[in-house]
Every structure is written in C-alpha cells, then in structure tokens.
Design a binder for these strands. Structure first.
Length: 422
RNA sequence: GUAGCUAUAGUGUAAUGGCAGCACGAGAGAUUGUGGAUCUCUUAGAGCGGGUUCAAAUCCCGUUAGCUACCCCA
C-alpha cells in the first residue's frame, strides 16, 4: 500500500473544518489590523534561503529540501516564508505604495526533519510581516496581533516570552563577549556545548545539562545592548504593558535564524510536548538591505498551524453535518426525474444529496438522518403521477404532500422553522 | 543523524506458545413506501522477510513504518 511520505499528513474532511476555523479567525484579525494577504511560490532559488536564514544554520545545512531542476538550477522548497516575502517585496517594489507594508500569509513549509509531536516535514504556517518601520509600537502591534489570534481561537495557558538581540553590531559584540567568557570553562562543557561554542555560543546558555547550566549562570548576564537598542526594547515592553499584554523577559530566547535583530519573541503553550513554541517571530532590520534593497526595518511572526491544532484539540467539538434536502427515491425510473428536480433546487442554492445505490426507503431515511438533512423529499411514483412529492420535516417528524411547483418555498420554510427551534 | 517504545478488521482494543475475540463503525433485516432506541444477521484483521518450535499474533533476528525524545525548530 502506498502511504503518505514520512512527516506529511492528509488533512481529512473531518479535520478540515478545524483548519477553516483557524484560518478564517486569523483572516478576520488580519483585516482588523489592516494586513493584506500575499501568496508566494513554494519553490524558490535555494540561494534565497541560504543568504537570508544563514548558511551555518541547521535549517539550511540539514533540513532544507534542495534539488536540481532540469536546467540544473538549485531549487529549494521553502522552509519558511519571510525570505520569500522579502524577495517578493523587493521584486515588486511593494514599499513604493506606502510607508509600512503589512502582509500576511498562510501556507505549507518544508523541512526535512525527523518527525515528532508538533513537527512534520510538510507543515503549515500562518504569519505576518510588517515592513518599513523601526517604531517599537510596530513590534507591539505584531505581538498583540498574535495574542489576539490566540484569544480568538480560545487558546489558553500560553506564555509570551520576549527578548532583544540588539542590532547587528550588538549581536556580534554579544557573541564575542560570551565566547570569551565561556572559553575558560570549555573543557567542562558537555560535548554538544563544545560544538555550540563554535556554531552558536548563545545556545550554551539554554543547555539542559546541569554542568553547563551552572557555568552559564556564573557568567554575568549584564546588559550588552547599545543605548538605541536598549531604548527600543524598553519601549516595546512599555507598549505591551499599555495594552495589557502579559509577557516574560527571557534572555535565553535566541532564535535559530540569522536575520533576527532587536526584538524576538516566542509564544509557548503547555499542551504541545517538547516542541512547545506555537508562534515565534521578531525584528529583522538588516535582512532587506542584505538582500539588495534599501535599509528597511521590518518585524513579523509565524504560527505553526499544526501546533495551534494541538493546543486546541482537547475542547474540539464535532461540527454536525448539515444538508437542506435529501432525496429518497422509490419506483422504477424515478431517479432521473429526481435528479432533475435536485438540480433545480441546487440552482436555488439549496444543499442537496441523493442516494445513488438505489437502496430501500428505510435505508435512505437512515442515510438522510446521518447526513443531517433538515428535509427529505420522498420522490415516489404515486406522488409524481399527481405532480406532487412528499416533503418530510426531519426535526418535527412531520410530513405532507407538496405540489412540485411549491417545493422551494416549502423547503425554505422548513429550514427557517428548524433554525428557530434550534 | 541518534535513542527508547510500538505494530492485530475502517477505528479502538483482548488473548504470553495451543481454534484470533470484543466494542464502535459500516451494510442488510425485524411483514408491502419512512429516520435518532432495541434486537438479529453480515462485513472485515496479524506491516514485510527470515529463524526457533509438533505448534508463533505471542519467542529471536532483520527490515519497514509509526510514536516519543535528543538535536533543531513554527
């Protein structure tokens, strides 16, 4: 039997309603904040991501799907959306239209990782990018947008953790200072942290190993930001307080992508397992210039939709199927005539279904019940001879004969009555 | 890439070496053309390949897949 590839999943009809709920709730909120949708291709030149995310990062080194197309070009399946959006922003000169360009996206991303809870190879993200301003209130807007989505979906027990990495200069400065501070203890670190010393020193401060943690705690966590970045961070914190968003400052938040500067944040949720970040983002003030544009500050975030579903799932309720009309057909040669009437009702916008297996009337009634039909048209020889059908109201369990010409009005009346009694 | 656990009808599960069972689901029926209950019947299963044994769902080896965790990340 053929199976879906490792780390990929079918979203089945039973789950699709939940996806639609999440997407439409998010879209409503994007509209409230005046963010417009952008859809970029899932394939891009591999170099786009290598340049933006960083050549040394795991995402690029170990996780990116890269292949050569027929023209021997190096193509990547996008591992995230920000790089593509910045590319589209520059390519289409979106910054010309207004000072701040506010975009949102929903779509699949691809990373070739070992799957586990909340982690797939094809997964889906929903996020925003606000390009064109370094105003700390824009950071606050983006964070509050994320918080509002959580609230709209009823996701509770989440934590907002924020930090500031500083500008590019600060980042380099911090890394250098940390490396210097850790160096004397290099031999006492765990093997992984010895690797991290070269690759990403800051992660040593997030190591779970007790020995490493002790060393990390012994090193001063003094403020290493320049005055501009420190001021920016203070303004973000103040802005969050002003609009009543709770947060925790967590100096351990580092983010795995090279392009982040200044504000970074993560929203974590208890029910997610080891991968507890449901949403993450931050500023990337240098990326656009690095990619050949003007010096343009920007900020954004991404939610993992599968992780949103994980944190929603416990109080997930089944949505009852609904159908305006089910056709129960009896008698020789009646199906074609019934099908014709059904087509007319569909023209009027009524949702209809019919049994194609020519089952017994009893079986057809059972089917109507299961499909959640509010009305059943019993389409039989006897009635048709008199230009009538029997119309059964499934909620009231009442039935009457109706002239074919009056059927639409009668059905609509049934639906209305049903809606009120519910 | 590494480790641990798991693999039985569509789904969830039981049987520790001796006839693969249960529940849900799905289908049919309980007197002529009528749905939520009940009852009856039907349906469908050992991931794959080896080995041990008189006998393997059960023990062993391999393999594949899934889950969880590490790494890393949304």
């Amino acid at each position: 039997m053929l199976k879906a590839l490792r780390g990929t999943k079918d979203i089945l009809p039973a789950d699709a309603a939940l996806w639609q709920f999440i997407e439409s709730s998010a879209r409503d909120i994007f509209a409230i904040y005046d963010y417009k949708e952008i859809r970029t291709p899932v394939i891009e030149e591999a170099s786009l991501f290598i340049r933006s995310i960083g050549n040394a990062t795991d995402i690029v080194q170990k996780e990116m799907y890269v292949f050569s197309d027929r023209g021997e070009r190096s193509i990547a399946l996008r591992p995230e959306a920000t790089a593509s959006i910045v590319r589209a922003y520059l390519e289409n000169s979106l910054g010309q239209e207004k000072a701040v360009t506010k975009l949102f996206y929903i779509g699949p991303m691809f990373r070739s990782e070992r799957p586990q809870k909340g982690r797939q190879r094809q997964f889906h993200q929903l996020g925003v990018e606000a390009i064109g301003s370094d105003n700390p209130l824009l950071d606050v807007e983006v964070i509050s947008l994320a918080a509002r989505i959580m609230r709209a979906l009823g996701i509770k027990d989440f934590n907002l953790n924020i930090n500031s990495l500083g500008c590019q200069k600060d980042k380099a400065n911090i890394i250098e200072k940390r490396r210097k501070a850790v160096k004397p203890y290099l031999n006492s670190l765990c093997d992984e942290c010895k690797e991290r010393y070269n690759k990403n020193v800051l992660r040593i401060f997030d190591c779970k190993n007790a020995g490493c943690r002790k060393i990390a705690e012994g090193i001063e966590s003094d403020n290493l930001l320049c005055s501009d970045c420190a001021g920016h961070f203070e303004a973000v914190k103040k802005g969050l307080k002003v609009i009543g968003i709770n947060f925790i400052v967590d100096p351990k938040i580092v983010r795995g992508l090279d392009y982040y500067t200044k504000t970074v944040f993560e929203v974590t949720q208890k029910d997610l397992g080891a991968k507890d970040a449901i949403c993450a983002g931050g500023r990337y003030n240098s990326l656009i210039e690095e990619m050949g544009g003007k010096d343009t500050p920007a900020v954004g975030f991404a939610f993992g939709i599968e992780r949103m579903i994980l944190s929603l799932e416990k109080d997930r309720h089944l949505i009852k199927p609904e159908l305006d009309v089910f056709f129960a057909v009896t008698g020789e040669g009646m199906h074609e005539k019934a099908f014709q009437l059904m087509n007319n009702l569909r023209d009027k916008g009524l949702s209809c279904d019919i049994d194609y297996d020519e089952k017994s009337l009893k079986a057809q009634m059972r089917m109507a019940e299961k499909l959640g039909a509010r009305s059943v048209i019993i389409f039989g020889e006897d009635e048709i001879k008199r230009e009538k059908v029997s119309l059964r109201d499934m909620l009231k369990r009442e039935q009457k004969e109706v002239d074919l010409k009056d059927i639409v009005e009668e059905i609509k009346a049934n639906s209305k009555k049903g809606a009120i009694s519910c």
